[in-house]
Design a protein around this nucleic acid. Structure first.
Lengths: 363, 363
DNA sequence: CAAACTCCCGGAAACGTTTACAGCTATCGG
DNA sequence: CCGATAGCTGTAAACGTTTCCGGGAGTTTG
């Protein structure tokens, strides 16, 4: 009944005016106390009491409008279902959190318009900065990235002259590590299950595979190459198609999801892994270590790339005038049971001693 | 040189004032044109041109302050690495997107203070609403949920009298489905690998397991119960401990991550699945179908729960005066090769015909 | 031809904060 | 005992947008 209607916000929640009125001080004093700067002991007491009584909680939007910062950082990835992004996200989150900010994740589903829309919409001030890991890049997309109103860091391959902070790896070299390893362990008919050839990683891995084979003087058999998308189901069906027409002694997969699909297809077809077919995935995610046998996988340093990207972003938020920077994280190969050089005891013949030997050796 | 300094924002970006001045109209007219409401053809032309020339992009924060809505909805989950949340997220995303809003995901890492802080911080106006799926609930937490400044929907078990929108399932009944199935296929020494007993799902599943066994007149052997957390690694080590001291003919796991860990441990220990040990997981995620053999799993309808939660949230955003509602999604069991009643051809004896029969039959 | 009506426009208020500035009181030094 | 200084306080402007409202011009109607 005594409530001063005009002191509270549209939806009836208390504002700094409510608190100030109740404490009998000006909104300036109330604001200062609430932010812990200045105020006489008596004022502080009254304001604190008033705030507690009415259950005041500051409106973050209004605060942001004034301070020009939201304390939020966004990460946009194609598919949260892919564990590689989970690992990247964890690394980013820990850096971002240590700066007192919060991380928001957005899944674009690989639809490029979605991603551009996100850049335009989310980025126009809802967040202080954004990390994006696109798998397809168009010119349109690129300009949206370059003149984004908030700082942006790109994780992934980008044109050399793009004026955007960029953290990348060398996935062609990563593919080479896998092929070298397979060749070194005596494999010659090496199959390759790739993702779409209209994606940046798809192109790079295809080129890397062909180059690596060439370098070893192995003639390429196109029958040994299959393309799906970067998901489990496609990896499985692509491998089924491949097995139906030819007979590899090794399989390299463009990511771990594909590799898991391939493993399923191989086992279902009665092939023994690694005895009949050695299997190597890419991204070295948790998923690779979950499988039985554990999968060898090429690490593209996703956690490290995430960490670096977050650091670049925080630096740029602090000083937007920095010149565009580019960092590179080297790939490495984790050799596990699925391509073990020392052939592990196969399943039918008894329990393999996987524990000590299967935890992954970085080559 | 000619730039009117006062027309642009602090960081030099154009505002609606810039556009209005350049077009020679008032900010009111500029705003109207930019929002597509009214304006003479001539004004529209001038404003559009001016906006394009200066590269105007509206400040979302200022807009939100005025309109009291951000167009953003948040989802807070414990662990993005758990595929069950991925499925839930996808369902939520599609509902949320169809309302023209965007979904932001936040991982709390299961730390309860983190989650409360998120509620307080993110929720004080950065988002229009929030879906949260807590695995631990304290009183403190609950009050934070109840008097959150923005609409909140909880996915998961909650006290009966909690005045919060709530979508739940009956995980005790879900456990019963699994146990019934295992008993019906002749298993008697049924092991159970659970998550922490200080979590809501952990408690419910423990109670459900004991009740189900009792109902079948099977005496509980505590040796057959192991507890870890809800992750893969814990599932694996817990299963190793269990196998070291006893000899189950079936294993029920409190979620799919644990079940995958258990599968690894079983195979590494030389047990055949399902011949020696039948295996059933819970959540029925993509992961269950990725394994070889494919895992039977109790579906708790996570996608459906996500969809319903999103709908409840949108309704409450539209009308905050709605009374608290509660919806329930029934569990169901997907029987696959890992517990096949008709024992599938085991691996050593040749390729099993998993494809037609292993795609999951809902019991 | 006057009155009523439509349409468009600009001024100004509002959203809820933070903060620059100026005024006030009280204390301290000379 | 008086002037300088330090510490609080309140007024008001600012952040960038949307929108209410009143006035003016042009069009239709009686």
């Amino acid at each position: 009944m005594g409530r001063k209607r005009l002191q509270e916000s549209a939806d009836g929640r208390p504002t700094v005016h409510t608190v100030a009125a109740r404490a009998g001080v000006s909104i300036a004093s109330a604001s200062r106390v609430l932010n812990g700067i200045g105020g006489s002991p008596e004022t502080v007491r009254k304001v604190r009491a008033a705030a507690a009584e009415v259950g005041y909680v500051p409106n973050a939007i209004a605060r942001s409008l004034q301070s020009q910062r939201t304390g939020l950082v966004a990460l946009a990835v194609e598919d949260i279902g892919n564990p590689v992004y989970v690992e990247m996200m964890r690394a980013i989150e820990s850096v971002v959190a240590s700066s007192g900010r919060q991380l928001l994740v957005h899944a674009t589903g690989g639809r490029i318009d979605n991603e551009t829309a996100l850049l335009r919409r989310l980025a126009n001030r809802y967040v202080d900065g954004m990390i994006v890991s696109p798998i397809r890049v168009t010119d349109d997309h690129l300009t949206a990235l370059v003149d984004s109103p908030v700082p942006v860091v790109v994780v992934g391959q980008l044109d050399a002259d793009a004026a955007v902070d960029n953290v990348r790896t060398d996935s062609r070299h990563g593919v080479a590590l896998a092929v070298d390893h397979l060749v070194a362990t005596g494999r010659r008919r090496i199959g390759f299950v790739n993702g779409p050839l209209d994606t940046v990683p798809g192109i790079a891995r295809d080129a890397g595979f062909r180059a690596a084979l060439l370098r070893h003087g192995i003639q390429l058999d196109e029958d040994l190459i299959e393309v799906g998308d970067f998901q489990y189901a496609a990896g499985r069906t692509a491998t089924e198609r491949l097995l139906a027409r030819t007979d590899p002694d090794a399989l390299f997969c463009a990511n771990d999801l594909i590799a898991v699909g391939a493993l399923h297809a191989l086992l279902a077809a009665g092939r023994r892994v690694p005895q009949d077919v050695a299997l190597v995935g890419m991204d070295d995610t948790e998923l690779a270590r979950m499988m039985f046998p554990q999968l060898s996988s090429v690490s593209l340093g996703s956690a490290e790339r995430g960490r670096r990207a977050a650091e670049l972003l925080l630096q740029r938020i602090a000083d937007p005038t920095l010149p565009p920077r580019r960092e590179q994280v080297p790939p490495s190969l984790a050799v596990r049971a699925s391509s073990g050089a020392t052939l592990p005891v196969p399943w039918p013949d008894g329990p393999p001693t996987t524990h000590p030997s299967s935890e992954g050796v970085t080559a």
